[in-house]
Write a protein that binds this DNA or RNA. Sequence first.
DNA 1: TGAAGCCATGGATGCCATCGACCTGCGCCT
DNA 2: AGGCGCAGGTCGATGGCATCCATGGCTTCA
Lengths: 153, 153
Amino acid sequence: MDAIDLRLIGLLRDNARSSYAELARQVGLSAPAVHERVGKLEAAGTLRAYRAEVEPEAIGLGVTALIGIIEDSGADTDDVLAALRIMPEIESCYFMAGVESYQLTVRVGTIAELEQLIVRINRTPGVASTRTAIALSTKWENRPQPGRDPAVG
Amino acid sequence: MDAIDLRLIGLLRDNARSSYAELARQVGLSAPAVHERVGKLEAAGTLRAYRAEVEPEAIGLGVTALIGIIEDSGADTDDVLAALRIMPEIESCYFMAGVESYQLTVRVGTIAELEQLIVRINRTPGVASTRTAIALSTKWENRPQPGRDPAVG
DNA sequence: TGAAGCCATGGATGCCATCGACCTGCGCCT
DNA sequence: AGGCGCAGGTCGATGGCATCCATGGCTTCA
């Protein structure tokens, strides 16, 4: 992980469909060298995936909400997590410090679907209560931040 | 926007670096046809960007937190937003219904940096108070959800 | 029923991914 | 000090891919 790797990561975060030739021009190496570096970053798990970012409204997912979950005192966290994992509407799931054990980002088509989702989560064994906040608008999402050398950090 | 477009979007959300030839095989069309469809989806803004998903720890961003912001009663929302926008640590920013006007996802390297960021946000004119919750672990993030035809939704 | 437009097909062409061979600089061992 | 081995680079070749263009079919609307 050196400065060139960080630049490659930055370039791929800006445009994951860049060709290796293009990346090579940008960082001043040959295409095979870039190919090998990117392959190693993928193998190391640093580059996890390449994803298209889609306008949610265009695919019928116009409602975004954040849901906090308070667990029952005796809840089995693994069971709760497994139940959450199979709900496709849950885009992100963080295990949090604080009263609310989980914080979810969810995406559905309509307020009615959001209601059904909340009911389903509340019925999940181990879930004591939920707190939902609806996003009126998304100012920005998943904005890439320039990486730093973790050794320096 | 038909079923094939939705499948193309799904394939690109799973792997944004798929070649057009590969996409064509998956959906049963020719490569030029896929090329044209994807181009139109990009032009329409449905496909916004292609991004590499990076392990945050590997680029020195191991601390994730969610911050809620309560605005001053007389705050100019545009000014607050502009101040937030120039903070690179803020990965996502939603304008919310409820007491907390904004909900942020932030990513920093250390708890000390998180503290500095919170101070900076609290000092921003128009910000009355903030509430921060730290993510102990990320169960999953940005999991793609199968799209639906928005006309049906 | 006819015409027009949209869209897929198939071929051609130049660029790209990718493999193998070789080179170079550095650290280590003798 | 000198040579060995390795990590990581360039170069060249080749097969596949992106992309443009001309052609032809299907649908839709008058």
